[in-house]
Simulated scan of single mutants.
Amino acid sequence: MAMRFPKNALVALTVAACLPYLALKLLWLSGGTPGIPRDSPLHTAGSTLWVLNALTVLMDTVVVLLALALARPWGRRLPAPLLALPLWGASGLLGPIALGFPVQALYHALSGAAPQRGSGNGSGALLEDWVWSLVYSGFTVQGLALGTLFALYVRERWGPLLGSRPARPVPLGPAWRAAGAAGCAGALGIGAVRAVEALGLWSADPADHGADSRIVDGCFALFALLAVAGTVRLLRGAGRTRLWVPLAAVWSGSGTLACWGGWLLLGAFSGSGQVLGQRTDGLLNLLHGTQAAAGLLLAAVAAHAVRHRSATPAAAPSGAPPAAERQTRSR
């Protein structure tokens, strides 16, 4: 009972954070225009944006289902991959928002500067200000609540494995070594580009290079670094660090790289990104593709490492030899 109450409260919080967004999207899908200014380019977006809105409704509905699965007994019986893939995607998409949006809000509160709002490919604003605040506040709460539920879930289901301290490296064949090297190189390259943009030294999109964009770039650079550091630590052995630390780093970092890179590519190739003011030239598409590929490669390498770790005996406490070695010494 002690654990059920916080879980139920977190589920209720997640659902409450999803409802305004879902209601707004359903109104738009049915032809309503609340929150859309009269001169917004969204009025002429056509069927492509309708499909994109339907997709985001499905994605937010999945967040509700995931919250229920993480808190209910039947969720413990689900196959791990069935939960892992959508949770990885949700954490990748929501993580940068949960980190970046509060930083942006704090910056505007301290500086008094007006937030940057999208203007699409026309002169009018895409959405009214209250829509941005409502949507991104909801995403932030979703990310924090769902992340807490996930942490409680994995502690209960895989606590011994995640709490272990494996000291030996994961054996990798040539293909896995190549995948890990390519993933790390791509992530470091994307992280360097994002860091340069965050510092204001250069931007792939000079038209979108204000403070809000630079904060977002800084978040992406951080997640890229987490992905690489987590992968390297996971493969080499956690040492004195428990396994969940590098795993959490590569989980969040690779998810952010892959899912946001894929989402931006979807916007570019579907045409919806142009309506929303997204540049879709060759350089940016190359960056987004590299970002998505790096995230997928690092996620695959991390999954391989976790399968190896779960197939071997749990590591002994830090400073103590493994059980087999202790038995050999006693003989």
Rank of each mutant, 00 (worst) to 15 (best):
R4G: 00
K7H: 00
A17S: 00
L19N: 05
P20N: 12
L24V: 06
L29H: 05
G32Y: 04
P34A: 00
P37Q: 13
S40M: 12
V51D: 03
A54R: 08
L55A: 15
L58M: 10
L58F: 06
T61P: 01
A67L: 13
L70Y: 11
R72C: 02
P79G: 07
L83A: 08
P96C: 09
G100Q: 09
P102I: 04
P102L: 03
Q104G: 10
A114V: 15
G118H: 07
G122V: 07
A125L: 10
S133A: 14
F139R: 01
Q142R: 11
A145W: 08
F150T: 05
L152A: 13
G163P: 00
P166T: 06
A167D: 15
P169G: 08
P171W: 02
P174W: 12
W176V: 15
W176Y: 15
R177Y: 14
A185M: 06
A187R: 06
V193D: 12
A195G: 11
L199T: 11
G200E: 11
A207S: 07
A211W: 14
R214L: 09
I215G: 05
G218R: 03
G218Q: 05
F220L: 15
L222Y: 15
A224H: 11
L225E: 08
A227P: 06
G230N: 09
G230I: 06
L234H: 09
L247A: 12
S252G: 10
S252I: 01
G253N: 11
G255P: 08
C259V: 15
W263K: 03
L265W: 03
V275K: 02
T280K: 08
D281V: 13
G282T: 14
L283R: 12
G289K: 05
Q291H: 02
A300T: 11
A300F: 01
S310P: 03
A314T: 07
P317I: 05
G319R: 02
A324H: 15
